[in-house]
Design a binder for these strands. Structure first.
Length: 314
DNA sequence: TGATCCCTGCGT
DNA sequence: ACGCAGGGATCA
């Protein structure tokens, strides 16, 4: 479910309930999510205060006053629900709520905070996970050691050209590769490629000139990635299959999709008239407009880049 | 670099 | 019954 904008939305919802508060009681309803919880997980949290709640790519990190950091990843279906002591609910994006009647299924972790707030982690598919590592070694932890650049931290065409240079892999796959740029997922990659008018199957290396400088397409892509992420964060992320509530707290960016999940529909670009197509790349759906995002343009430059690359290396 | 798998639920 | 789903680790 969550890509960078959704995780950032969750972070903003959790922040007021977590930062400055202590875990008074942590209950695990099962021994594992995607991975087993770390040893003595609940005991290492209980009594500790959260000093800061940050986001790195699609990960949330809660720094504790014990010197450890709680790492949380939502996988595909992870959600947090914040219940305030007065009965109000403070999650922006209440789409993580299953409903008000009865105990929701898949509530795997319940964190009672010293403020009286209760934070519940719910994850249907259990692709999410939590970990606890020493704060000093957070950057070297197995989750972060090989993580790519943060796209909202100054992504430019030059950075993209540097990362993609010499790569034959399709643009779609390169943008999904968290070791290069971290935080994009299927939705925002499709949306960014459409905005930049780039074909998803064009070779990633075609965005770098032979001397390594960015092409115009690389600059356009960087701009599109940053724009689509910022707009999605502003909209509170995208709500897809989750139940929509009426309190105005669901994500709204799904209404701004130009290609994602719009196969067969007309391209919304003014004067385009194309139809959104769906192809499968690396086992995942790619949505694009063949009219807006022609292969030919990229094929030409990719061929030039490929010849140059082979020439240089051979 | 691509399949395969992890897991559950939903729509066709 | 089958395909598909916002992620990603782990193999050939």
């Amino acid at each position: 479910m969550p890509e960078l904008p959704e995780v950032e939305t969750v972070r903003r919802g959790l922040e007021p309930a977590m930062v400055g508060a202590r875990f008074s009681r942590v209950t695990l309803r099962r021994p594992d999510l995607r991975f087993p919880f770390p040893p003595r997980f609940a005991a290492r949290l209980e009594g500790r205060a959260v000093t800061a709640l940050a986001r790195r790519a699609k990960y949330l990190t809660a720094a504790l006053d014990s010197g450890e950091t709680l790492i949380m990843h939502l996988g595909m279906s992870g959600r947090f629900d914040v219940a305030l002591p007065d009965g109000r609910n403070l999650s922006p994006g209440d789409f993580y709520l299953e409903g008000s009647q009865g105990v929701p299924k898949h509530d795997h972790v319940v964190m009672a905070m010293s403020t009286g707030a209760t934070i519940t982690y719910n994850d249907t598919r259990r692709f999410g996970f939590m970990d606890l590592v020493p704060s000093e070694t957070l950057a070297e932890s197995r989750h972060f050691a090989r993580m790519g650049v943060e796209p909202l931290d100054g992504l430019t065409g030059a950075v993209i050209a540097d990362l993609f240079r010499g790569k034959i892999t399709p643009l779609k796959a390169a943008l999904l590769d968290q070791r290069l740029i971290a935080g994009l997922g299927n939705i925002y990659v499709c949306e960014a490629l459409h905005r930049a008018r780039l074909h998803p199957e064009a070779p990633a290396g075609s965005l770098a000139r032979p001397d390594g400088r960015p092409t115009a397409a690389a600059n356009a892509l960087a701009k599109a990635v940053v724009a689509v992420l910022n707009e999605a964060v502003r909209a509170g992320g995208s709500t897809l299959r989750d139940y929509a509530h009426t309190d105005g707290s669901t994500g709204a960016f799904q209404n701004a999709f130009r290609v994602y999940d719009r196969v067969g529909l007309a391209c919304t670009r003014a004067g385009c008239g194309g139809q959104i197509a769906r192809v499968v790349q690396a086992g995942r759906s790619t949505f694009f407009c063949a009219s807006c995002q022609p292969e030919s343009r990229q094929a030409a430059s990719a061929g030039a880049a490929g010849r140059q690359f082979r020439h240089k290396s051979g």
